[in-house]
């Protein structure tokens, strides 16, 4: 086989192989050493702390059916989350209550990472230390809900 042809074939094969390998998703490890149960406890704690910043008696009502474990891209990592309705808050105080939650977050090691106001009452914040995220949202009926979610964790933990 002539040398130029050999070189072209070799180069083509290498380019194709490189192209086939490109695009594989990067695998990342867990973002927290907590296991599934500990992540669930941390979720509840963050929610309780935030609700404590609201006035009056707030009753928590599950949006779904308790803690939710959802898959991350890298098996077996999951996120653990929970959402609650905040019952007992006047609808006319929605803006004020959202501001109170944002203020609590910013004073508790969270950074606001998303805010859809004024188009939508929806704010999201992330804890700069443990990576947990929280959101507050309003339904079209005027009810506020809050949720907290862990970063991707290994269900068994990494300790």
């Amino acid at each position: 086989m002539r040398r130029p042809v050999r070189s072209v074939c070799a180069a083509t094969a290498l380019v194709l192989l490189a192209g086939a390998c490109v695009g594989d998703s990067e695998e990342t490890g867990p973002s927290s050493p907590l296991d599934e149960a500990e992540a669930g406890e941390r979720v509840e704690k963050h929610i309780a702390d935030a609700v404590g910043a609201l006035p009056g008696e707030v009753e928590l009502e599950d949006v779904g059916n308790g803690l939710v474990s959802a898959s991350c891209e890298t098996d077996p990592l999951i996120t653990v989350s929970r959402s609650y309705w905040l019952r007992g808050l006047p609808e006319e105080d929605i803006e004020q209550n959202v501001d109170l939650l944002v203020e609590h977050w910013e004073g508790s090691g969270f950074a606001v990472t998303g805010d859809l106001r004024p188009d939508d009452v929806f704010v999201t914040a992330e804890n700069e230390e443990d990576g947990f995220t929280m959101t507050v949202a309003a339904s079209i009926q005027g009810s506020l809900s809050i949720d907290a979610s862990s970063p991707c964790i290994d269900p068994s933990g990494t300790d």
Binding site: C72, T79, T113, G114, T133, S150, C152
Partner: peptide, 14 residues
């Protein structure tokens, strides 16, 4: 979901 890039430390929101 929510994820944190372990290398860059960048946050993602929902």
């Amino acid at each position: 979901n929510q994820e944190e890039d372990e290398e860059s430390g960048e946050k993602v929101d929902t």
